[in-house]
Write a protein that binds this DNA or RNA. Structure first.
Lengths: 343, 343
DNA sequence: GAATCGATTCAAACCGCTTTGGATAGGTCA
DNA sequence: TGACCTATCCAAAGCGGTTTGAATCGATTC
């Protein structure tokens, strides 16, 4: 059932039916109701291909997911972010387009999306220091919102980000308050912008107490269970091991916990751990009582906000870039306690 | 730059240019090369909206992701499956469309995709016992491939699945060979088809040795860290606790490990654990040596195969349903060992 | 009673591509 | 030489909507 058929059924022109369905004012209320009823009866849904061509809009938002050709890792926060953003798109009649590409093809992917008119805008994921994609998207004129920020970017852009610096400053400060002095940082890869900010927060907190950072207590790696385990094992076997850790993800913290227990130490008593908790739906930090003390900020909510911001932006083409800074909350769990007595 | 402009630049008709670019035979080779060169020079990409309308195909595959309104959980295997399927789509010029909907709206979502002509086919995720979506998709004539199977489905359909029954039969058999007799099953929700099959494999293995299953050793729940922990804690505090576990996911196994260690027991010595390992990229089961002994089968590979199968099907409309059964391999890790001496 | 107006409705153009059904020209065959 | 191919190219008709510009008509105004 298409528009023409529906119109002739009703004895109306396609024009009028189209207008009735799209809420234009110049159509008689009685007619509109008749049209609406008929559309519902026949379960009519306008062909999105036709709408897209006619309006020149795609009613779709793109997400380019680069897959590193070497280690083939998919960002674990991806599914929750998508879930949040997807909710918003569905409500607004937008489709979500995912483009999985080898990471060296990312630029081409954006250019293609633009040239093909496949989507009206994109969300930029996992920004790095001085991220070249921001310039690219600006240049080709594809509207976008960044999930995160890019330190050093010359051009203004819209973003939604967690206050990573503050979160790690508070986490570190909390451990300092508990009397810890040997505090380790197990960070993500430090060409990622979020990791840079987290490191800064950690260093700021130490500096505020006049404690100098020990490079041996700072690791930067992929946030996997195995790498968390390795970092924990290595640091705990130092001559002067840390009594506390600040660690960038729930997943690597599971590895860290494994390392702690392998050493015969007890989490929360011998060694304290504060994690950054993205509140992933499939990896909750405990049910009622949190397992780990954490700086928590929902990735799904970030997805919602980024999506909503982008749709807003599309509605107001040449408005100024928008920004949203989310604060993480520090929640106390069972993985932290006062610093053990010095031996 | 659109087709008409490109054509007039070249002094050709849009017809010829279109045919040249799409590899039709009735165009002079010299002309074709001239067209190709010009297209490349101007970085011409045909507007996908126009192609879709003109051909009646969407060149897109849909994935409907239901989000349970209550617990808001996203399937953790989702991102890896998507990554695998997405690779295949990209290579074949297809787009991937993700539709995030409240689970009670799933049926409507499929009907909409069909009516709007938004995609040419869909992948059906997380099938259940006698899944109604199979009938729906068949009825509305939207081509699909199921990731998994649906016990009890009346109609034939195409699917890609892991041999879950066999995997769990082997896992259980392996533990029996090690002398374990009190073997627990920590399963996923048993209205999910995969969980039904895993349970059957577990029971088959026990039955083959004349061991009767103990209901107290069989749990069925969501596959989260917390639930894995709870199941482990409960069972280990039974008067006659299990000496081994077969458990449905890496994530819940992390919770189980936590429960084991809380009891002062050692994984692989006091308690053996075999997991089902979906080989998720962000949650690898160790690096070189597996942490857990596991039945491993890559979800990403399943994604690739399901996507390829669907594209095949679209190319051969009324062919018979296709099926692909993947075998999991049993890999030996550090979480299993001979049954401890009976006290 | 003619001109004007607001409320409705419609015919036709258009979005950018594909595809059908010729048209043209040069070569081949009897 | 005339009929018949073959190779190559093109005009025009869709695809299914939206949108522009105009038509219709009863009511209102002067």
């Amino acid at each position: 059932m298409n528009l023409k058929q529906l119109a002739s059924q009703l004895g109306l022109s396609p024009t009028t039916v189209s207008r009735a369905l799209n809420g234009y004012p110049e159509v008689n209320e009685a007619t509109r109701e008749r049209v609406m009823a008929a559309a519902k009866r026949h379960n009519y849904r306008p062909d999105s291909r036709a709408i897209r061509l006619a309006t020149g809009r795609s009613m779709a938002i793109g997400h380019v997911i680069p897959v590193a050709t070497r280690h083939e890792i998919v960002n674990p926060i991806f599914s929750d972010f998508i879930a949040g953003a997807g909710e918003v798109y569905s409500r607004s009649g937008y489709d979500m387009l995912i483009s999985v590409v080898a990471d060296e093809d990312e630029e081409t992917a954006y250019r293609n999306l633009r040239a093909r008119g496949a989507c009206d805008g994109v969300i930029l994921h996992a920004p790095r220091l001085d991220d070249a994609r921001i310039d690219l998207l600006t240049e080709i004129g594809l509207p976008f919102v960044v999930h995160g920020r890019s330190t050093g970017a010359a051009l203004p852009y819209s973003w939604v980000d967690v206050n990573n610096r503050r979160a790690f400053e508070r986490a570190t400060g909390f451990l300092l308050d508990l009397g810890h002095r040997r505090i380790a940082l197990v960070n993500g890869l430090e060409f990622m912008d979020f990791a840079i900010r987290r490191r800064k927060g950690y260093l700021d907190a130490l500096a505020a107490r006049g404690i100098s950072a020990d490079p041996a207590l700072m690791a930067s790696d992929e946030m996997t269970e195995a790498r968390g385990h390795r970092a924990g094992r290595d640091m705990l076997s130092l001559p002067d091991p840390p009594t506390a850790f600040v660690i960038s993800s729930m997943i690597s913290a599971l590895g860290l916990r494994r390392a702690i227990e392998e050493q015969g130490l007890k989490l929360g008593r011998d060694v304290s751990v504060v994690i950054h908790d993205d509140d992933l739906s499939y990896l909750r930090n405990g049910e009622d009582v949190p397992i780990f003390t954490a700086a928590r900020s929902s990735v799904r909510e970030a997805g919602r906000q980024a999506a909503a911001m982008l749709l807003d932006l599309l509605g107001a083409p040449d408005s100024a870039p928008r920004e949203a800074l989310l604060e993480a909350e520090l929640i106390i769990g069972q993985s932290t306690g006062p610093a053990p007595e010095r031996k």
